[in-house]
Amino acid sequence: MGKRPFIGTSWKMNKTRAEADAFCTTLAASPWAQSDAASLFVIPPFTVLSRVSDALDGTRVTVGAQNAHWQDAGAWTGEISPLQVKDAGGRLVEIGHSERRTFFNETDETVSLKTAAAVRHGLIALVCIGDTREEYEAGETAAVLKRQTEAALSRVQWQDGATVILAYEPVWSIGEGGTPADPGFADERQGEVKEVVTGLLGRPLPVLYGGSVNPTNCVDLASRQNIDGLFIGRSAWQAEGYLGIVESVTSALA
């Protein structure tokens, strides 16, 4: 059997309850929902997290939240705790996405606190790292990824079952108008990240690629040695688009 990639999508601030239901109905009815050819995950807005978790219960699809605080409870208006994520059926937490770093003052420090909290509560921590256009053009990508990776892992207690996945998402490749990273470039950077992790832990962690993943480049990206899966945005916001990428990738890697 070939590589078993992670293939997931975050809906960001999209989908009503009815739209979430429609996506889950299509996904749950597909053969990929029960397949072990890939590790699928879906990260909806918190408004439908419980609903999506219930709809995909009984499948192999992991459901997660787009953010979680580092405290278990308290006077943190508008925030969601790791305990609340678990209570709503989430098994994964996305942490440190560049949009949160850019617009909501997420820092390496808060990413480290959130990563440790997620792991402490038995959640999968999906930690996003990435370089800006300015950092990329200045040749600082490797240094930026090293700093962000070391910070994210700095507080994690590696008890049994602790799971952290990294996702390299170049800021210049994300969103509408983003430029997909060359697969060779992404592979090299992710290899460097794995070297950093191995230096810290004595073993690598999975590193996914995210940033303008689409039906045209998904197989080339997922086939690379150091790319352990794909974290997809708008190309996977419709269930048919998501499942199309899953089918293309898994068929190519089988």
Rank of each mutant, 00 (worst) to 15 (best):
A142P: 01
E169W: 06
D21I: 03
Y242M: 02
A118R: 13
P45A: 10
Q225L: 12
F23I: 02
K15D: 04
L27W: 02
I7V: 09
E247L: 09
I95L: 14
H69D: 14
F185H: 15
G241N: 03
A18C: 02
M13T: 02
R101A: 05
D87T: 08
C24G: 06
A186Q: 01
Q238H: 12
D54N: 11
K146E: 15
R147C: 05
A125G: 09
S154P: 07
G139F: 10
A55S: 13
S30R: 10
V61H: 04
F6R: 00
N217L: 07
L253P: 00
Q84K: 13
A152V: 14
E176H: 07
T16V: 10
G210Q: 12
I43Q: 08
G130A: 11
V61P: 01
Q225E: 13
L153F: 00
A239H: 06
H69W: 15
K114I: 02
I245T: 03
A239V: 03
A55G: 06
V246C: 03
F185W: 09
L166E: 07
A138G: 08
D21C: 01
D220A: 14
W11P: 07
E195A: 15
R234D: 05
T9I: 04
L123H: 08
L40M: 13
Y242N: 00
A254F: 00
A138S: 11
G90R: 13
P44T: 11
N217C: 10
G96Y: 10
E240F: 05
V164E: 10
S251E: 13
I124C: 13
W172E: 00
G244V: 10
V119K: 04
D220H: 04
D108I: 01
I227M: 05
A117T: 14
A222W: 09
I124G: 06
W172Y: 14
L113G: 00
A167L: 05
E79P: 06
T132N: 08
G175L: 09
L92H: 08
Q84E: 11
S248L: 12
T141P: 12
P204S: 09
W32A: 15
R189F: 09
M1S: 12
A181L: 07
V42R: 06
T107W: 01
A88Q: 11
T141W: 00
R91G: 14
P44C: 03
H69A: 13
E137D: 14
T115H: 08
G8V: 04
L201V: 11
N105K: 15
C128E: 09
G8Y: 02
R155F: 03
T163H: 15
W76F: 15
G233M: 08
T26Q: 13
L40Y: 01
A29I: 02
F231V: 08
E19Q: 13
A254K: 11
D182T: 02
C24R: 00
S10Q: 09
A33T: 06
L166G: 11
A20S: 12
D131Y: 03
L123I: 12
V219G: 06
A117C: 12
A181I: 15
H97Y: 08
P5E: 02
E109D: 15
